[in-house]
Simulated scan of single mutants.
Amino acid sequence: MDYSAQPFAQVQPRRAVDAIMKQIRDRIQSNELRPGQKLPAERLLAEQMGVSRNTVREAIRMLEVSGLVTLKKGATGGAFLNDSNTAALSQNIRDGINLNQYDATDLIDVRLVLETYAVERACLHATDEEIDELAAIARQSKLAESSEPNYEQRLVLHMDFHRKLAAFAHNRVLEVLTEPLLEMTRQFHLKSGPAAGMETHELRARLVQEIQDRDPEAAKKILAEHFKALQDRLFAVTLHS
Protein backbone atom coordinates (compact mmCIF):
# COMPACT_ATOMS: atom_id res chain seq x y z
CA MET A 1 0.00 0.00 0.00
CA ASP A 2 1.38 3.41 -1.01
CA TYR A 3 1.31 5.90 1.87
CA SER A 4 3.47 8.49 0.08
CA ALA A 5 0.59 11.01 0.11
CA GLN A 6 0.75 13.99 2.42
CA PRO A 7 1.17 12.69 6.01
CA PHE A 8 -1.43 13.35 8.67
CA ALA A 9 -0.76 16.34 10.93
CA GLN A 10 0.27 15.99 14.57
CA VAL A 11 -2.46 16.51 17.14
CA GLN A 12 -2.49 17.72 20.72
CA PRO A 13 -2.85 15.04 23.41
CA ARG A 14 -5.97 16.74 24.75
CA ARG A 15 -8.98 15.56 22.75
CA ALA A 16 -6.61 13.73 20.43
CA VAL A 17 -9.23 11.12 19.54
CA ASP A 18 -11.61 13.83 18.26
CA ALA A 19 -8.78 15.47 16.32
CA ILE A 20 -7.83 12.18 14.64
CA MET A 21 -11.45 11.51 13.68
CA LYS A 22 -11.79 15.02 12.27
CA GLN A 23 -8.72 14.67 10.07
CA ILE A 24 -9.98 11.40 8.63
CA ARG A 25 -13.49 12.78 8.09
CA ASP A 26 -12.06 15.86 6.39
CA ARG A 27 -10.12 13.68 3.96
CA ILE A 28 -13.23 11.64 3.22
CA GLN A 29 -15.13 14.88 2.55
CA SER A 30 -12.41 16.09 0.16
CA ASN A 31 -12.34 12.68 -1.61
CA GLU A 32 -8.69 12.19 -0.69
CA LEU A 33 -9.88 9.06 1.08
CA ARG A 34 -12.41 7.02 -0.87
CA PRO A 35 -14.85 4.14 -0.16
CA GLY A 36 -13.09 0.80 0.09
CA GLN A 37 -9.68 2.35 0.76
CA LYS A 38 -7.56 1.03 3.61
CA LEU A 39 -6.37 3.52 6.21
CA PRO A 40 -2.66 3.61 7.07
CA ALA A 41 -1.55 1.22 9.81
CA GLU A 42 -1.97 2.26 13.45
CA ARG A 43 1.81 2.56 13.84
CA LEU A 44 2.14 4.95 10.90
CA LEU A 45 -0.84 7.05 11.95
CA ALA A 46 0.52 7.28 15.49
CA GLU A 47 3.90 8.46 14.20
CA GLN A 48 2.41 11.05 11.86
CA MET A 49 0.00 12.43 14.43
CA GLY A 50 2.36 12.32 17.41
CA VAL A 51 0.12 10.20 19.62
CA SER A 52 0.14 6.69 21.03
CA ARG A 53 -1.13 3.71 19.10
CA ASN A 54 -3.79 3.26 21.78
CA THR A 55 -5.14 6.74 20.97
CA VAL A 56 -5.25 5.92 17.27
CA ARG A 57 -6.92 2.60 18.05
CA GLU A 58 -9.64 4.36 20.06
CA ALA A 59 -10.28 6.86 17.26
CA ILE A 60 -10.58 4.05 14.71
CA ARG A 61 -12.94 2.21 17.02
CA MET A 62 -15.16 5.32 17.24
CA LEU A 63 -15.15 5.62 13.46
CA GLU A 64 -16.25 2.00 13.28
CA VAL A 65 -19.13 2.69 15.69
CA SER A 66 -20.17 5.68 13.55
CA GLY A 67 -20.28 3.42 10.49
CA LEU A 68 -17.44 5.07 8.56
CA VAL A 69 -14.96 2.18 8.71
CA THR A 70 -14.95 -1.58 8.99
CA LEU A 71 -12.18 -3.41 10.85
CA LYS A 72 -10.91 -6.60 9.23
CA LYS A 73 -8.58 -9.15 10.80
CA GLY A 74 -5.75 -11.12 9.29
CA ALA A 75 -2.63 -10.45 7.26
CA THR A 76 -4.55 -8.33 4.77
CA GLY A 77 -6.76 -6.75 7.43
CA GLY A 78 -6.94 -3.25 8.82
CA ALA A 79 -9.40 -0.34 8.85
CA PHE A 80 -11.29 0.07 5.56
CA LEU A 81 -13.60 2.92 4.61
CA ASN A 82 -17.16 1.77 4.09
CA ASP A 83 -19.01 2.33 0.84
CA SER A 84 -21.83 3.93 2.82
CA ASN A 85 -22.72 4.61 6.44
CA THR A 86 -26.43 4.13 5.74
CA ALA A 87 -26.76 1.37 8.33
CA ALA A 88 -25.31 3.56 11.06
CA LEU A 89 -27.49 6.47 10.00
CA SER A 90 -30.54 4.22 10.10
CA GLN A 91 -29.66 3.02 13.59
CA ASN A 92 -29.10 6.57 14.83
CA ILE A 93 -32.50 7.66 13.59
CA ARG A 94 -34.21 4.63 15.12
CA ASP A 95 -32.48 5.37 18.42
CA GLY A 96 -33.94 8.86 18.21
CA ILE A 97 -37.43 7.42 17.77
CA ASN A 98 -36.92 5.25 20.83
CA LEU A 99 -36.05 8.43 22.73
CA ASN A 100 -39.33 9.99 21.50
CA GLN A 101 -37.57 12.52 19.31
CA TYR A 102 -39.65 11.53 16.30
CA ASP A 103 -43.03 10.00 15.62
CA ALA A 104 -44.60 8.11 12.73
CA THR A 105 -46.51 11.17 11.49
CA ASP A 106 -43.21 13.01 10.98
CA LEU A 107 -41.89 9.94 9.19
CA ILE A 108 -44.78 9.84 6.73
CA ASP A 109 -44.53 13.57 6.01
CA VAL A 110 -40.82 13.31 5.18
CA ARG A 111 -41.25 10.18 3.09
CA LEU A 112 -43.98 11.88 1.05
CA VAL A 113 -41.66 14.79 0.25
CA LEU A 114 -38.73 12.55 -0.72
CA GLU A 115 -40.74 10.00 -2.69
CA THR A 116 -42.63 12.70 -4.57
CA TYR A 117 -39.23 13.82 -5.80
CA ALA A 118 -38.26 10.18 -6.47
CA VAL A 119 -41.38 9.56 -8.55
CA GLU A 120 -40.80 12.66 -10.65
CA ARG A 121 -37.17 11.71 -11.23
CA ALA A 122 -38.10 8.11 -12.06
CA CYS A 123 -40.59 9.30 -14.69
CA LEU A 124 -37.84 11.32 -16.32
CA HIS A 125 -34.73 9.21 -15.80
CA ALA A 126 -35.59 5.54 -15.10
CA THR A 127 -34.84 3.16 -17.95
CA ASP A 128 -37.56 0.97 -19.43
CA GLU A 129 -35.82 -2.06 -17.89
CA GLU A 130 -35.85 -0.44 -14.46
CA ILE A 131 -39.55 0.37 -14.71
CA ASP A 132 -40.22 -3.24 -15.74
CA GLU A 133 -38.34 -4.36 -12.63
CA LEU A 134 -40.45 -2.02 -10.49
CA ALA A 135 -43.61 -3.48 -12.04
CA ALA A 136 -42.40 -7.02 -11.35
CA ILE A 137 -41.83 -6.21 -7.67
CA ALA A 138 -45.32 -4.70 -7.46
CA ARG A 139 -46.85 -7.88 -8.95
CA GLN A 140 -44.83 -10.11 -6.64
CA SER A 141 -45.88 -8.06 -3.63
CA LYS A 142 -49.55 -8.30 -4.59
CA LEU A 143 -49.27 -12.07 -5.04
CA ALA A 144 -47.62 -12.41 -1.63
CA GLU A 145 -50.59 -10.64 -0.01
CA SER A 146 -52.66 -13.80 -0.45
CA SER A 147 -49.96 -16.49 -0.65
CA GLU A 148 -47.38 -15.49 2.00
CA PRO A 149 -48.65 -15.94 5.58
CA ASN A 150 -45.55 -14.38 7.13
CA TYR A 151 -46.23 -10.64 7.42
CA GLU A 152 -42.57 -9.81 7.89
CA GLN A 153 -41.75 -11.47 4.58
CA ARG A 154 -44.47 -9.46 2.85
CA LEU A 155 -42.96 -6.31 4.33
CA VAL A 156 -39.66 -7.12 2.63
CA LEU A 157 -41.36 -6.75 -0.74
CA HIS A 158 -43.15 -3.56 0.32
CA MET A 159 -39.90 -1.95 1.35
CA ASP A 160 -38.06 -3.25 -1.71
CA PHE A 161 -40.55 -1.49 -4.00
CA HIS A 162 -39.83 1.88 -2.39
CA ARG A 163 -36.10 1.16 -2.23
CA LYS A 164 -36.03 0.46 -5.98
CA LEU A 165 -38.11 3.56 -6.65
CA ALA A 166 -35.44 5.66 -4.93
CA ALA A 167 -32.65 3.86 -6.81
CA PHE A 168 -34.33 4.38 -10.18
CA ALA A 169 -34.54 8.12 -9.54
CA HIS A 170 -30.76 8.10 -10.09
CA ASN A 171 -29.87 10.37 -7.20
CA ARG A 172 -27.41 8.80 -4.77
CA VAL A 173 -28.19 11.23 -1.94
CA LEU A 174 -31.87 10.31 -2.22
CA GLU A 175 -30.98 6.62 -1.93
CA VAL A 176 -28.93 7.18 1.21
CA LEU A 177 -31.69 9.24 2.85
CA THR A 178 -34.42 6.78 1.88
CA GLU A 179 -32.85 3.67 3.42
CA PRO A 180 -33.14 4.63 7.13
CA LEU A 181 -36.65 5.98 6.54
CA LEU A 182 -37.71 2.63 5.09
CA GLU A 183 -36.23 0.80 8.07
CA MET A 184 -38.19 3.09 10.38
CA THR A 185 -41.34 2.38 8.35
CA ARG A 186 -40.74 -1.36 8.59
CA GLN A 187 -40.42 -1.13 12.36
CA PHE A 188 -43.66 0.83 12.55
CA HIS A 189 -45.54 -1.76 10.49
CA LEU A 190 -44.16 -4.62 12.57
CA LYS A 191 -45.35 -2.85 15.71
CA SER A 192 -48.81 -1.96 14.36
CA GLY A 193 -49.40 -5.38 12.81
CA PRO A 194 -50.93 -6.63 9.52
CA ALA A 195 -53.84 -4.83 7.88
CA ALA A 196 -55.84 -5.28 4.70
CA GLY A 197 -53.52 -4.14 1.96
CA MET A 198 -55.19 -4.63 -1.43
CA GLU A 199 -55.78 -0.87 -1.76
CA THR A 200 -52.02 -0.45 -1.47
CA HIS A 201 -51.43 -2.85 -4.36
CA GLU A 202 -54.04 -1.19 -6.55
CA LEU A 203 -52.47 2.22 -5.99
CA ARG A 204 -49.02 0.78 -6.60
CA ALA A 205 -50.07 -0.72 -9.94
CA ARG A 206 -51.50 2.64 -11.00
CA LEU A 207 -48.31 4.37 -9.88
CA VAL A 208 -46.13 2.06 -11.97
CA GLN A 209 -48.39 2.62 -14.97
CA GLU A 210 -48.00 6.41 -14.70
CA ILE A 211 -44.23 6.02 -14.42
CA GLN A 212 -44.30 3.83 -17.54
CA ASP A 213 -46.33 6.56 -19.26
CA ARG A 214 -43.70 9.10 -18.13
CA ASP A 215 -46.38 11.25 -16.49
CA PRO A 216 -44.85 12.74 -13.31
CA GLU A 217 -47.88 14.84 -12.32
CA ALA A 218 -50.28 11.88 -12.46
CA ALA A 219 -47.75 9.67 -10.65
CA LYS A 220 -47.32 12.20 -7.86
CA LYS A 221 -51.10 12.38 -7.33
CA ILE A 222 -51.29 8.60 -6.93
CA LEU A 223 -48.36 8.63 -4.53
CA ALA A 224 -50.18 11.24 -2.43
CA GLU A 225 -53.22 8.91 -2.32
CA HIS A 226 -50.99 6.10 -1.10
CA PHE A 227 -49.55 8.15 1.74
CA LYS A 228 -53.00 9.48 2.66
CA ALA A 229 -54.14 5.87 3.12
CA LEU A 230 -51.06 5.20 5.25
CA GLN A 231 -51.79 8.31 7.31
CA ASP A 232 -55.38 7.14 7.89
CA ARG A 233 -54.11 3.76 9.05
CA LEU A 234 -51.69 5.44 11.41
CA PHE A 235 -54.53 7.47 12.91
CA ALA A 236 -56.63 4.33 13.39
CA VAL A 237 -53.77 2.49 15.09
CA THR A 238 -53.06 5.46 17.38
CA LEU A 239 -56.77 5.79 18.22
CA HIS A 240 -57.02 2.19 19.38
CA SER A 241 -53.64 1.97 21.13
Rank of each mutant, 00 (worst) to 15 (best):
D2N: 15
D2Q: 07
Y3W: 13
Y3E: 07
Q10E: 15
Q12A: 12
A16Q: 06
D18S: 09
A19Q: 14
M21Y: 05
Q23V: 03
S30E: 10
S30P: 00
L33D: 09
R34P: 12
K38I: 12
L44C: 10
L45R: 03
A46W: 11
G50Q: 15
G50H: 05
V56I: 15
I60M: 15
R61G: 06
M62V: 05
M62D: 11
T70E: 10
G74W: 05
F80Y: 11
F80M: 06
T86N: 13
A87W: 15
L89M: 07
S90K: 12
Q91G: 08
I93T: 01
I93N: 05
R94L: 15
D95H: 00
D95V: 00
N98A: 05
Q101I: 12
Q101Y: 02
A104G: 00
T105W: 06
I108Q: 09
V110D: 09
V110N: 06
L112D: 12
V113I: 14
L114H: 05
Y117E: 09
A118E: 01
A118D: 07
A118N: 02
A122W: 06
A122G: 04
H125S: 10
D128M: 06
E129D: 15
E129V: 09
I131Q: 02
I131C: 00
D132S: 07
A136T: 11
S141C: 02
A144T: 05
E145L: 07
E145I: 00
S146H: 00
E148Y: 00
E148T: 12
P149G: 05
Q153N: 14
R154Y: 09
R154W: 07
V156A: 11
H158N: 09
H162G: 01
R163M: 11
L165D: 10
A166S: 06
A169E: 08
N171M: 02
V173W: 11
T178R: 08
L181A: 06
L182G: 08
E183S: 09
E183M: 11
H189A: 07
L190T: 07
K191H: 14
A196E: 09
M198A: 10
E202P: 01
L203T: 13
A205E: 11
L207H: 12
E210P: 00
E210Q: 11
I211Q: 00
Q212D: 10
D215W: 01
D215C: 04
P216C: 03
A219C: 01
I222C: 09
I222K: 12
H226T: 14
H226G: 01
H226P: 01
K228N: 04
A229G: 13
A229V: 15
A229T: 15
D232V: 10
R233G: 12
T238E: 08
T238Y: 08
S241K: 15
